[in-house]
């Protein structure tokens, strides 16, 4: 009798659970890329897997805009496999928060900033953006950023983050805040950003010495940022360990090594000057490193910046 009652409750729950309303994989369209422009309303365009069609919609919020897109579809839109989130800088912070809540999307979805007309960008050039971002990252041109990484940076005290940006038909890096684009980095500064974040590997670095231009092959690299107090200042040392070799026949050339060291230090220095000094952004976790080591009592990043001295230590193993 007890068993029957339990079964009755369970069966009742089945009917009440509304499970019949759930849609399975054949009734879902899986969003691949989203482009968002924020104006009076949010305008979006999205591409789905297995289809070349671009779906457009708008709404007061991102989710209502996605809902608007669904109205034109026979299938439910599912964002769990989103690969690229392309957005104008306006309201990007809130949109990232919305996307990450309830684990709606994968935390490793890429973010791309499109200062002008992200909707049109997805329409015209979408389809293989994830592969484009990954290959650019592999070549050390840009640093692919995921939603989780960007949101984490935006929640730090400086409220700034680096993201890949689509500018003049090319991909480079930019610094954003939750609601605006702070500035774009040049090609060299973007490369410097990649070196400062670490994990540059399997790339060729062009170097010039003795009147020759040659390539130095970077097999793998590792970056470590350390901080130590020195009087009133805080010395930030960027240590980059590289494993690679020169393409020159004279593979043990000390000059090649020296030139690599100079080149990378110059790139990093440019990036630091632009991002830290000019844009007042902490894109490398410097503030966290300083606070972990308890090197300062200052709580504001802008007051810490004048205390910083940067030096670069490039170690190359062939």
């Amino acid at each position: 009798m007890k068993t029957k009652k339990i079964i009755a409750v369970l069966l009742l729950s089945v009917t009440l659970s509304g499970c019949s309303g759930s849609s399975d994989v054949r009734n879902k369209a899986f969003i691949k890329e989203i482009g968002v422009d924020y104006g009076e309303t949010q305008e979006i365009s999205l591409r789905t897997f297995g289809s070349d069609e671009v779906i457009k919609g708008n709404g007061k919020t991102l989710l209502s805009a996605v809902g608007d897109c669904e109205n034109t579809q026979s299938k439910n839109l599912f964002s769990g496999h989103l690969e690229v989130f392309a957005s104008s800088p306006a309201n990007i912070g809130n949109n990232l928060l919305t996307l990450l809540s309830n684990n709606r999307i994968s935390p490793s979805c890429y973010v791309l900033c499109v200062p002008e007309n992200a909707v049109s960008f997805i329409d015209k050039e979408g389809g293989k953006l994830a592969e484009l971002i990954r290959s650019s990252g592999r070549n050390g041109i840009i640093l692919p950023r995921t939603i989780s990484g960007v949101l984490n940076d935006l929640l730090e005290s400086d409220r700034k983050a680096s993201v890949p940006v689509q500018k003049d038909g090319r991909l480079t890096m930019a610094v954003i805040s939750p609601n605006e684009l702070i500035g774009t980095l040049s090609e060299d500064e973007s490369k410097g950003l990649c070196w400062l974040h670490g994990n540059v590997k399997d790339v060729y670095l062009p170097i010039e010495y003795d009147g020759n231009t040659t390539d130095f092959y970077i097999r793998k690299s590792n970056t470590k940022i350390t901080a130590e107090r020195s009087g009133d200042k805080i010395n930030i040392t960027v240590e980059i360990k590289i494993n690679g070799n020169s393409d020159d026949s004279n593979k043990n050339s000390a000059k090649a090594v020296e030139e690599v060291s100079k080149t990378i230090s110059a790139l990093c220095s440019k990036t630091i000057a632009k991002t830290v000094t000019v844009m007042k952004a902490d894109l490398f976790g410097i503030e966290r490193t300083i606070k972990s080591a308890r090197l300062t009592n200052e709580t504001e990043w802008e007051k810490i910046i004048p205390l910083l001295n940067f030096s670069y230590n490039i170690k190359i193993a062939q």
Partner: peptide, 19 residues
């Protein structure tokens, strides 16, 4: 409420779990 659970309502889920 925060994590996606494939049930229509939290109360139903609690009842089934209770059973």
């Amino acid at each position: 409420k925060s994590v996606y659970f494939p049930i229509e309502s939290s109360f139903t889920g609690a009842v089934i779990l209770g059973a």
